[in-house]
């Protein structure tokens, strides 16, 4: 049970972690992340890398959709922009990987800003459709701009190397992707302690009133698009390095729906939600695979239904959470926490 947490300055009350307990938990989490590679096998490390990449993309989408209220179905395509940029730089200039990753994010940001232009004219649902259009146009470019993207055959990318070690397998790649994810999450959390984050939420809740109160809608909507695309670009670049090859099929519309589902399932407008949603949605297909393997004991070609079952489950998760738990896993987490705050005096 926790009782009051007195503070002496308002600055202390504005901190990211406001209680000593929160700091302690954050420390425990970091320690666990640092220790994990020494105890886990490659499969688990592979999963954590994949989760991390997804969490970055989901965080970006959450900034745009969950916090700013602009639905986007283009996040996967922006990841593609980041991935192709990284691949091209890696194969043509040989510049170091941090530069490539940043460049990929910046190019994705630029594309995201252009794709966000319709948001200046249209709201909500029209915008979602505009992002579908942008996504199709980008996929078309991935397929047809042969000289850069190598068309449908795709491109291979050499793994990045740091301090002479090739970050080739999950056990080494872990040390790149996890710290990047932690930093990206902290940056996004910081944003919502400031005027910019508040402006985003105000636009989501009541855009016209926000404008009357001094929020420049076009500016902040585009900024949100840009941030979201930056995160997508970073995730895409890491994806390219992690899997070592990309092609236009790597970033389909279905992946954008997957990322949107992660935002909804995790919790719109919550950083914790981005993390929980990213973890949950990455693990669901894995769990399904075990389930199907198990079914395979009893029925023939059970593995053939894996992909459609996954599609159905993604859809059901979106519908189910929107209907029954619109605030997502983050809200369930909060409920559990509240229970323990008062425990054992109230049940």
């Amino acid at each position: 049970m926790r009782i009051g947490s007195p503070k002496e300055t308002y600055a202390a009350d504005e901190a990211l972690f406001r209680t000593r307990t929160q700091w302690a938990w954050f420390g425990v989490l970091l320690a666990a992340l640092a220790g994990f590679p020494f105890v886990a096998n490659l499969y688990w490390l592979y999963l954590v890398c994949l989760v991390s990449i997804n969490v970055i993309a989901v965080t970006g989408l959450n900034v745009l959709t969950g916090y700013t209220g602009q639905v986007s179905l283009g996040q996967a395509a922006f990841m593609g922009v980041g991935a192709y940029t990284v691949a091209w730089l890696e194969n043509h200039t040989g510049s170091p990987f941090p530069v490539n990753l940043l460049a990929g994010s910046v190019v994705a940001t630029g594309v995201g800003l252009i794709a966000g232009l319709p948001s200046l004219r249209v709201k909500g649902l029209y915008l979602a459709i505009a992002t579908i259009a942008a996504s199709f146009i980008l996929l078309f470019i991935f397929k047809n701009w042969e000289s850069v993207t190598n068309g449908t055959r795709g491109i291979g990318i050499e793994p990045p190397s740091a301090f002479g070690v090739a970050l080739e397998n999950p056990d080494t790649f872990y040390w790149l992707v996890v710290p990047v994810t932690v930093v990206m999450l902290l940056l996004a959390s910081n944003l919502f302690r400031t005027r910019i984050g508040r402006a985003f939420i105000a636009i989501r809740d009541r855009d016209i009133s926000a404008s009357v109160l001094g929020i420049d809608l076009p500016r902040y909507k585009l900024m949100s698009f840009g941030i979201s695309a930056f995160y997508a670009g970073m995730a895409g670049g890491l994806y390219a390095y992690f899997f070592g090859s990309i092609n236009p099929e790597s970033f389909p519309l279905l992946m954008s729906i997957f990322l949107l589902a992660a935002v909804i399932v995790g919790g719109m407008g919550s950083m914790l939600g981005s993390i929980l949603g990213g973890i949950f949605m990455t693990l669901v297909p894995e769990l399904l695979r075990y389930g199907i393997d198990f079914l395979g004991l009893f029925m023939e070609n059970a593995s053939a239904v894996l992909s459609p079952v996954r599609t159905v489950v993604f859809g059901l998760l979106i519908v189910g959470f929107l209907l029954f738990e619109p605030l997502g896993l983050a809200e369930i987490w909060r409920r559990i926490r509240r229970f323990f705050h008062l425990w054992p005096f109230r049940t």
């Binding site: 005027r195 508040r198 402006a199 105000a202 926000a210 109160l213 001094g214 929020i215």
Partner: peptide, 8 residues
Amino acid sequence: KLGAHVRT
């Protein structure tokens, strides 16, 4: 705080 947006 959002009210103070224009002052920051």
